[in-house]
Amino acid sequence: MTSYGRGLRGLSVATIATITVALALVFFYAPLDANQGFIQKIFYIHVPLAIVALCGFVVGGLLAIAHLRTGDRKWDLRSYVAIHMALIFGVGGLITGSIWAKASWGHWWVWSDPTLVSFLIVMLLFATYQPLRFSIEDPERQARYASVFAIVAGAFVPLNFIAVRMAQGVVHPRVLTLTGGRLPGSMGLTFAVSLLGIALLYATLWNYEIAAKRARMQLRRLRRAALGDDAAGALGRSAAPS
């Protein structure tokens, strides 16, 4: 049996250090945005959260491919946790985005902004991941179907963004274009450190969640081995891989 949460300590320390540096950079180093002023500081938390969430969804799909290829259930667990964490980060991205919209446009929700809208659609789709898992009883089938869903939904993420972007004019405050072209160096640096910090946080929590899940699975297995199958059944069905 491997140890739970291997490498978690190093990862946590790196995360804390990076996020501390990022916060310091955001509030003491990065210059005020010429157009948006202080409100633009939301950008350093909102955009990394959203980017990491979207990457998490896609990674969940890739891990699901590994599951279907190998048939090894550990990949399903990884895919599940990747999507689970991405959902949490996505909620953060949505709320902070909404706050930003309220501050700069005066409305909590702006339909004219394709990035916000497509992000909402992606969230709505992935929000069905857990109900889907939960309503399939057989664990093997649950893992397989969840992987199929994760692959389809992961591929849907970029498609959806293209479609919604084309449907509406581009209104999102492109403080940072994908090429990073128009961003002053100091803001770019701050953003990069923030993104790294959030990504590290994602990795840490992913690891932590996996460790917790594996410990629980091990506990359940021990129970079953020691007390027979009905003892473990009492724990109830779950949407999580088992």
């Binding site: 659609i121 069905t128 109900p131 889907l132 309503s135 009883e137 179907y145 939904a153």
Partner: peptide
Amino acid sequence: IHTRARDMISPIIGLPLLLP
């Protein structure tokens, strides 16, 4: 089709997928 709540699962998955 193999889920318990299939009448609910298929529209909630289908609608976002069909949005584009």
